Amino acid sequence: MSYQDGSQGTAVENATGAPVVELVDVQRHFGATPALDGVSLSVQKGEILGIIGRSGAGKSTLIRCLNGLERPDSGSVIIEGQDIAKLPESALHPLRRRIGMIFQHFNLLSAKTVIENVALPLKIEGRGRAERLTRAAELLDLVGLSDKRDAYPAQLSGGQKQRVGIARALAARPSLLLSDEATSALDPETTRSILDLLKRINRELGLTVVLITHEMEVVRAIGDRVAVIDKGKIVEEGPVWSVFSNPAADITRRLLAGILPELPAHLAATLPPGTRLVQVDFAGNLDDGRLVLDRSSESRAFRILHGGVDYVQERPVGRFFIAVNDTADLDPFLATVRASGARAEVLVR
């Protein structure tokens, strides 16, 4: 479905340079089971890409291929122009320093203070103590934890631990930040604060971010694009607002359940005999929603049962469920809605 919004696109959408990340037909099997089955993706500089899927879909294997911890059976994993799938282990070490990693369970060293945890990647690099501590202090200020520099992980909340993990991931000035279910162990309020921090870091540092998650709300909050993985294959990808407004794959629709409006069963059960039910989805143009509302108010033959409008990536995304009585001519209404670029599906004739 094509939505018309007149937008010129974001800087990321208009990017023309070489991608920071490019996967080309990546295959990875464990025995006879394909964990990745021909995955191809690219991520532009400064972009936030969300990779979403259910447990066992291939997300963990994909992120391990991106940081070089897993070697694909075939295909290319290109990071900043280098195919890391073909590099010897010795050549991977300097490249891994260009990739920051945020973990679900923080992975902090309990016997080290906050500032020592943040400085650890620089110690591994062989940087001097003064340089390490100066950089770590700057990053603790960035993530809002300057006052916790001498605390130990056991003295921190979950959100604070994740902020330390983010600071540590930034220590070596990476060009790519990988987030592996970084908010799934946090409560909703803390999750929002961490996502706001990641978005701010993305904007202020121009950092490219790949989010691995099973939560559509995470992608919705900060993603530029989303790729949906299922059974080792990318089944759908595109700008977040577009995929949310018109999911093409069944798995995407299931992952979106609870985010997009659904018609309550008790409303559907009360429809008079002969009533037609139409679902209208629109995105990118609020006039499409007004068209639905205006057309539905012209006559008692059309009645909005349920729905609403939300904003994803600053674009209106809406869904309405409209009851049409058996005396109304449905076809002109459908034609008008579809001509506007919205999607109209007759659920009950």
Rank of each mutant, 00 (worst) to 15 (best):
D224W: 07
R276M: 10
K231W: 03
V26D: 03
Y3F: 15
L255S: 00
V324Q: 03
S193E: 14
L186V: 06
Q162L: 10
S296K: 07
P316Q: 01
N325E: 13
L286D: 04
A85H: 01
G158L: 10
E116S: 08
V346E: 00
A344K: 09
A151Y: 11
V43K: 13
T190D: 04
T208P: 12
T252I: 10
L41R: 11
I115T: 04
L41C: 08
E80Q: 14
L62W: 07
V143I: 12
P261Q: 10
K112W: 13
L267P: 04
Y152G: 05
A344F: 10
W241T: 08
E47Y: 09
V309P: 01
T270K: 15
M216Y: 05
V346W: 00
E215M: 08
A328K: 07
P264W: 12
P273N: 15
R192D: 02
A137I: 00
I222S: 02
V114I: 12
S146Y: 07
L108C: 11
G81Q: 02
R290W: 12
I322N: 02
S193M: 06
A335E: 15
R135A: 05
L330P: 07
E125P: 00
G75M: 11
L140M: 13
I304K: 04
G56N: 09
Y152H: 13
E204M: 06
V243N: 06
R98H: 14
E70H: 04
R135T: 11
R300C: 00
L267Y: 07
Y152M: 11
L122K: 01
E89Y: 06
R28S: 09
F103E: 10
R253F: 05
A185V: 12
I259P: 00
